[in-house]
Amino acid sequence: MIENRPGLNLLAHLVLIAGVVIVALPVWVAFVASTHTATDFMSGTVPMWPGPHLVENYSRMLDAGVSTSGTPPVARMMFNSLVMALLIACGKIAISITSAFAIVYFRFPLRGLAFWCIFITLMLPVEVRIVPTFQVVAGLGLLNSYAGLSVPLIASATATFLFRQVFLTMPDELVEAARIDGAGPMKFFRDILLPLSRTNMAALFVILFIYGWNQYLWPLLVTTDAQYYTIVAGIKRMADAVDGLPQWHLVMATAVLAMLPPVAVVIGMQRLFVKGLVETEK
């Protein structure tokens, strides 16, 4: 707004501060909780400032985990989550960029049908087809494996459409110039399309990494071996203390640890991310 009225400025700040508090307070509480002992948290007054047990709690979780909940050490679960998220993000990008390439640049029979098949999968996310998908994955013997965790989540219509839009904005002359320069289809893909979609791939990677990292229902189903537990599903298992109180300080430490990789990815790739979403000119 152009008006310069202190009252409005104050109001704007209040709204923003309220927003920040709503978002940040739970995170703060989680962090504070992870630095106390179990009893501090159960005593009735929730502490608002970090306690002295930060190093102790975190190193315990990373090394050993909570044996009673049957989860492996957090480091192991984070590694599993990382593998799954990376496989999903990279797999989705690889598959969708090649299928978008096929749809945009090639005239083949049943091209329209292929396009609509991809389109229809938009209506069928994992949650909808979870039982048959589980059946297939189990039949292939992929339960308790990284492939089982990631492959069913890789096919992605959204990413294919994103790349299709990106490719459609590429000027035709660029394709023609490449043809005259003697670049065959795959060479054109590698030398020109890939470098030009770099920022879009980065933006998509950020979104898909977080999507993969936050997967909950699917890992919960296909992993029965603790060695393959992912961290998001693991937090749930930890909080389900069968006999006894949940070890909230440890659960919170795990939650804080689980937040770090997505945050790191977002911060690390922020510049590319924004560029990839905003940039339209090729």
Binding site: E176, A177, I180, D181, L196, K282
Partner: peptide, 20 residues
């Protein structure tokens, strides 16, 4: 014959330079 094998070179209106 494919464009690349026709021994011609083309200059486009919008230049069509590879931006990267």
């Amino acid at each position: 014959v494919e464009p690349a094998d026709r021994d011609i070179a083309m200059v486009f209106q919008n230049y069509a330079l590879y931006p990267h």
